[in-house]
């Protein structure tokens, strides 16, 4: 395993099940301060389940610690309040509500007006397009804009770590590049990021480390400098 800074998020023996079906075998998973960690794997590998288990959205066992203290295992609201913010698969936009309302709800737990404005300004700086669409219903925007809104909404919470589940899903390559680039910018500003992606090459360009999952199991933890293509990744699955 490659060296990484002291872990900010640390899961031990984390497993998850849907009813009787185990969707994620016990896994150790770490994110270091300032790291961007990619989670890769084919459909059904358990990538979403891993993120959902960290948040406590799915029945899970094991321990998860964040910034040195245990995270509750069955209380997503409490986990989110600790600054662990997930942009879920499918984005979870509040479709009938306006862009403005969606962003406001991201900062639900914040009371201070000035701080709220500061966060709005930061989101608009990253996604100028959102500023032009404040009155539009979130659900009526294009896929790419909705993903920007989902990330913008997550940033309104001022996350201490940002988890994203396939932000590129259903988006054109150019929009994907734009969004991944923004994630890179955020990460370089110090925000730890966990990025679930099927487009491995793009994710590996950004990532400091990558976890490779298949059929609900951890296959490998890899150093992106050593792997750049799908073919090279495939070797791990057959190893």
């Amino acid at each position: 395993m490659t060296a990484f800074p002291s872990p900010i998020l640390e899961a031990r023996n984390l497993s998850a099940r849907y009813g009787q079906v185990q969707a994620l075998a016990p896994i150790d998973f770490q994110v270091g301060a300032g790291e961007l960690v990619a989670v890769l794997g084919p459909n059904g590998a358990g990538k979403s389940t891993l993120l959902r288990a960290i948040l406590g959205l799915v029945t899970n066992a094991g321990e998860v610690a964040f910034m040195g203290a245990a995270l509750p295992r069955r209380n997503p609201v409490a986990v989110a309040s600790r600054g662990v913010v997930l942009v879920p698969e499918g984005r979870g936009i509040f479709g009938p509500m306006t862009v403005m309302e969606n962003l406001e709800l991201g900062a639900y737990r914040l009371k201070g007006r000035e701080e709220r404005q500061r966060r709005f300004d930061r989101v608009f700086e990253l996604f100028p397009r959102l500023k032009e669409r404040l009155g539009q219903a979130g659900g009526s925007m294009s896929g790419g804009e909705q993903q920007m809104l989902a990330i913008g909404r997550a940033l309104m919470a001022d996350p201490k770590i940002l988890l994203l589940d396939e932000p590129s899903l259903g988006l054109a390559p150019r929009v994907t590049d734009e969004i991944l680039e923004t994630l890179g910018v955020l990460n370089r500003s110090g925000l730890p990021v966990v990025l679930v992606e099927q487009r491995a090459p793009q994710a590996l360009k950004l990532a400091h480390r990558a976890y490779l999952l298949s059929l609900g199991r951890l296959v490998a933890v890899i150093d992106p400098r050593e792997v750049q293509s799908h073919d090279q990744l495939a070797q791990y699955y057959f190893a």
Partner: peptide
């Protein structure tokens, strides 16, 4: 309203 639209997404906003 957010809870009515998407309860899980609402929980994820805290």
């Amino acid at each position: 309203r957010a809870c009515a639209i998407n309860r899980e997404a609402a929980a994820l906003q805290g």
